[in-house]
Amino acid sequence: MSAVPASDLAVEVDDLTMRYADKVALDALSLTVERGSITAVLGPNGAGKTTLLETCEGYRHQHSGTVRVLGLDPVRQRKDLLPRIGVMLQGGGAWSGVRAMEMLRHIASLHAHPLDPQMLSDCLGLDDCARTPYRRLSGGQQQRLNLAMALVGRPELVFVDEPTAGMDPAVRRTTWDLLAQLRTDGVTVVLTTHYMDEAERLADRIHILDHGRLVTSGSPLELTRGGRMSTIRLVVTRPFPAGAHESLRVALGPGTDVTQLDELSLVVTGPADASTLARVSRWCEENDVLPESLTLGQRTLEDVFLELTGRELTP
């Protein structure tokens, strides 16, 4: 763990365990979030991302371990904490008959120095649905309104749960720009996502969660660099013969690893040089495998996740 003074940490989670009935949602989880950063919590559905956020927001009593948000206990000091944080829930959160701007103005009126709701509405493109009842907003519009509600109180720290789920690509980019601007202005952002590109593009630091455990942490660069590792991705036209990835691993020798993604594609991790490439092609020839594509690349977060968990991170 990095030696950051505690006062520079917006969130400190130490040895946190959460259980529901007999299911362990978070398992001895420890992580930190630095002030003024964008931190992404990445993981597949059911990894514990939302549970982690809701524990930080004081919705849930932790079963063991400690959580500090802006130096406060989110359950016992919730009253002091709430005005200082903004929360974007995954869905819902408004009366079905309330108009979009009416809802935003209402949340603004609960804060001492709110942002101008009209300015936020301009920023997030909510103007043409200002008078639309919440139940008639599209999924993307609801998401944008929910984000506006999280920001309107001028918080120090915002928790955003799957902020761009259901948004079209153009609005997604605008939302990313907005989140980046929050960081510029000194707001700490903690977001959950299962979009790799979102985490890779936005986050200063990424925590990867799987089955309630922290799998790894690092900056996007640290995670994808991982030494001098590179990847070769092989996609074929007919399903691989049985045991293909084993036989390819043998053919390539030590220093490389092979992970089969599905029956038509696999990834070779290791030094992606000419000799490895030549051995992959020779293996294809010997095994009567017809490549459709053979691509060289840096490791992506997707590859990292796959190596660490043995699964793909698709929603």
């Binding site: 200082r84 009126s109 804060h111 120095h113 942002l115 920001l151 001028r154 120090e156 202005d185 707001v187």
Partner: peptide, 10 residues
């Protein structure tokens, strides 16, 4: 600077 934190309850 638009979003510079200035939290507080009404």
């Amino acid at each position: 600077g638009t979003f510079t934190p200035r939290p507080g309850a009404a």
